[in-house]
Nucleic acid binder design. Sequence first.
DNA 1: GGGAAAATTTGATGTAAATCAAGTGAATAA
DNA 2: TTATTCACTTGATTTACATCAAATTTTCCC
Lengths: 245, 245
Amino acid sequence: MSKPNDFSIRCQNCSFNHLCIPVALNQTEMQSLDEIIERKRPLHKNDQLTIPGQKFTSLFAVRTGSFKSYITSPDGEQQITGFHFPGDVVGFDGLYSEKYQSYTQAMETSMVCELPYDKLDTMSAQLPTLRKEMLKIMSTEINQDHSLMMLLNKRTAEERLAHFLINLSDRFKSRGFSPAEFNLTMTRNEIGNHLGLTVETVSRLLTRFQKEQIIKVDGKNIQIQSIEILREKLGEHVANKKACG
Amino acid sequence: MSKPNDFSIRCQNCSFNHLCIPVALNQTEMQSLDEIIERKRPLHKNDQLTIPGQKFTSLFAVRTGSFKSYITSPDGEQQITGFHFPGDVVGFDGLYSEKYQSYTQAMETSMVCELPYDKLDTMSAQLPTLRKEMLKIMSTEINQDHSLMMLLNKRTAEERLAHFLINLSDRFKSRGFSPAEFNLTMTRNEIGNHLGLTVETVSRLLTRFQKEQIIKVDGKNIQIQSIEILREKLGEHVANKKACG
DNA sequence: GGGAAAATTTGATGTAAATCAAGTGAATAA
DNA sequence: TTATTCACTTGATTTACATCAAATTTTCCC
């Protein structure tokens, strides 16, 4: 049985390992981790990596492409909980109850590294750094969710979209991509869904930002002309401190 | 040095151990866990258990009383990310970066069990169940945050408050308290802050629910007269499925 | 216990973003 | 290539909730 592992795709030479689980591991440890990883065939656009109710077996690290995660309410409404790019690890929602709780869907042709949880767990008994790293990644996700909570509760539509664009820019930058020009793999509708806005509002805001010379929009292509002004849009909040304790 | 541990406060006879970290541990394991736990003097109302930037050393299990967690924006605005009751474990936000990221403040006189992280980590190397349990609790928190995201993005003020009351009722029930009558330890302002509503809206809704004979409100005291109608308020959503993928 | 401060309620008014509507443009498949 | 669907844009109108305002009522100290 020759696993796709043979294609010399290794954590050691992955350009996203500084963002991914291997970040804190030394060479030997990374080697061990590498050996348990399964690298499968690519997923195509709209393929589901996880579905709610499906038995939790693995975590997944995005290797190429991009994904969206979403949950649904009983009446079928969707809520996009996050977008994922290379180096991001998904699937932690499945640890509770041994079943995935959300959909994870490819937004374009994408590849993932599968990390079988039982093997990861066995390894983590021996490797404190790995144990810590997994908790750290989950902790990061919790903190991001809390920030988003504030964004959704306290910020205007304009501030939300500014935050979204800055966030994308930062994430692309840390992945070695251009922070100033990138293609959106998600639709306006998906951006709005995630930010609690309608597609019309997102569209109008992109147009407005373009008129204000902050960005250039050409369909899916975004050029950021002034990240400073974009950041100001977040800061320009009037201190409106309402004590709550 | 006699630790407060002497007061025969033990995980073994704690009435909330079915909700807390010990849930999956056997007697021997629970004993070991119990030995690393530090039980300190009570916190008073408004005391801070954690502050952003403070070095992360421990997780905390609420033993009695209640807490709120919140983060602040650069301009001082607060966002309450959650309320915590006996059996809840807090502090996971600190694992990322070794510093707590949020405030955890007592809403009334409260006691906690302190779980020093380094000892917990050492133990977890030996105990797969403990290792798993910690990840599970974090996973639960992630899933709760995702549900809240949908609540904030897709639900009306009425639905949010209904959800909040049902959630409180459920949590009190699983703790052996009455699900039908309880005292709010948080203010209307704090409820609104958490749900993305103003204090006026929360007040008006409580009045409305009372007029509709769903609840009885007397200051901090809430009696739920019909949890069914409250649940209907969540379900009565018109299926408004907007595909996003 | 009494006086200040904080929390709550209720009403009147304003507004940001949703909804409704109608078109153009881009992607996909036959 | 063309047909068909889906994505996006722009404008007009509506609305749920915020904001502003002003009484109570409750809580908290000194």
